[in-house]
Design a protein around this nucleic acid. Structure first.
Lengths: 310, 310
DNA sequence: TCCATATAATTGCCTTCAGCAACTAATAGA
DNA sequence: TCTATTAGTTGCTGAAGGCAATTATATGGA
């Protein structure tokens, strides 16, 4: 069994577990008179005012005729009414009545209570771990309704040094085939960064979203007048957000505020995306040369930005 | 909304997502003539020879009468037979016939293919992340059938250096309140380990289970006669498995095989569990002294093991 | 030893579920 | 203006599946 087959088998095992664990709870919904389909429709109605029957059918994967009948049933109980028609007279947006809300509310509360009961045996750190895992699954299986949190920049704390080294190591291995010596180089730089850390002259930014590492950048003192930008990294998952620019902008702003006169950085010709970011800030290529490292033949470059200008 | 209510809401959101995403796929099982219940029963039958109808009903949450009818249907198609009765004549263990297996096999393969298709858009690191998340969810929601894989020891590869540093940093921060300078120390040691790596004299072991980091240990050359054991770490989740002993045993065996005459290690008085492991291998405390590091006052110790003995 | 009680499996009865196709009404496109 | 498409409804129907009664066997006391 190869890797993807194994992963798929895991996914199936999870699905069986989940239908067993959750599905059964739902089947005859919490000893109300309502079927699972009815509850799902009610939930949608309560969450989104004015949905169309056709939307419900499509999104919940139900037969349109069946949905029509379910809705007819709700209408008979006066749980829903048809909203004043829009321009298109075929459409009849559905809204829950007060009675409908009242009928749904205890179900909703009950289901909430069940979920809480499931979490009760877990301590808060486990709950957080569970929450992250659930979010990860949804994200990776492409839940479009999953609202992403904001990107936050923060300074470093324990665990970050290793994380930054690890992501450098894995990413550059994946994308450029560099071997573990690159990761070691980064680890060494990071180690020195912490050991000689000058809070007034140096800084790092870790970008996260929902606790997930998205990228980082470091500014270290090269000499009294020169700041060095190091270890700019943007996760593939975060590309296209302008995160690289944002991180470099922080560095430049910081360096200016600390009265550095110039900023330099070392990079590599294969890193196209990064180069474009540097260029956009006015960095100029001042030196380059071939070298061999990390199991590859590379062209290293030194870029410089005059901070005194403009 | 307090914390647990929020978490419960997340769980419910996940359940809705999952039933939408997976449930629907299953409903009318892959355009075969079989219902979801039939497929679930078939799956159980194929996985466990000789189950009882009552077990199926209980474990899948189905009505016994319904199960009986499903099985009668299968029996009519000659997909199952009743195994020779056990001592208890009420019980009729069910076994799949060859025809039953043949009927299930394409379904199973199809479902496997569907799962693979779902994973196809994910690269391998995302797949690993997904697999971990799925496993976490099952573990935390108490899936008793979750069998843990074997613990495997392997050598290092890109990403490990950072991971090892990160776990040192986070764990020691959590458990002993050491600050990020400890992580930096570890990162520096790791960087030098890779940069000066002598494949014939040095080695590291990373312990994993199901792709999850469980612990590590390193052996580096101190001088021609002396091996140094460094960075022994066992994750809290893996404690009690004897992993610490196993890792140290690998180190000692390796050092012996490379003709080192002694093995030394540096540790700290607060690390009780590790000390016991060292003692059990015959390490003797040869030196200790107070020092301040990582924001704490500590007692560092040097231990030594004579490899020439016995 | 015998009886009350429990477990395993089956069957009859019945309601609800839910797929399919035909149908109406309104709209959009050519 | 004609045609195709979309939104929603309705009739028909087989299957799903809950509940209770029934049979056969086991088991644990008195």
């Amino acid at each position: 069994m190869n890797r993807i087959q194994h992963d798929a088998a895991q996914l199936r095992a999870f699905n069986r577990f989940h239908t067993g664990r959750i599905g059964v709870l739902n089947e005859r919904m919490l000893d109300s008179r309502l079927s699972l389909a009815q509850v799902r429709v009610l939930y949608e109605l309560s969450a989104r005012n004015g949905v169309l029957a056709s939307q419900l059918a499509r999104e919940l994967g139900l037969d349109p005729g069946y949905v029509s009948r379910l809705l007819a049933g709700f209408r008979r109980k006066r749980w829903i009414t048809t909203a004043p028609a829009s321009a298109d007279k075929r459409r009849r947006p559905i809204v829950l009545t007060k009675a409908g809300r009242a009928a749904f509310e205890p179900l909703d509360r009950r289901s909430q209570t069940e979920a809480e009961a499931m979490l009760a045996p877990l301590d808060s750190s486990r709950r957080r771990r569970l929450g992250e895992a659930l979010r990860t699954v949804r994200e990776l299986l492409g839940d479009s309704s999953l609202a992403a949190g904001p990107v936050v920049l923060r300074s470093h704390r324990p665990g970050d040094i290793g994380m930054v080294a690890q992501r450098h190591g894995e990413l550059y291995a994946q994308e450029y085939g560099w071997d573990e010596r690159f990761e070691a180089l980064v680890a060494g730089i990071l180690a020195r960064f912490i050991e000689n850390f000058k809070a007034e002259r140096e800084r790092c930014w870790i970008a996260e979203r929902d606790g997930q590492f998205l990228g980082c950048v470091f500014v270290v003192e090269k000499d009294a007048d020169t700041a060095q930008l190091r270890m700019l990294l943007v996760e593939p998952a975060a590309r296209g957000l302008g995160l690289g620019k944002q991180l470099v902008a922080e560095c430049v702003r910081f360096a200016r505020s600390k009265r550095y006169r110039r900023m330099v950085l070392w990079t590599n010709s294969v890193l196209d995306a990064a180069r474009h970011v540097y260029e956009s800030f006015g960095f100029r290529l001042v030196e380059q040369g071939k070298h061999s490292a990390f199991g590859k033949d590379l062209v290293e470059q030194t870029w410089e930005l005059d901070l005194a200008a403009n």
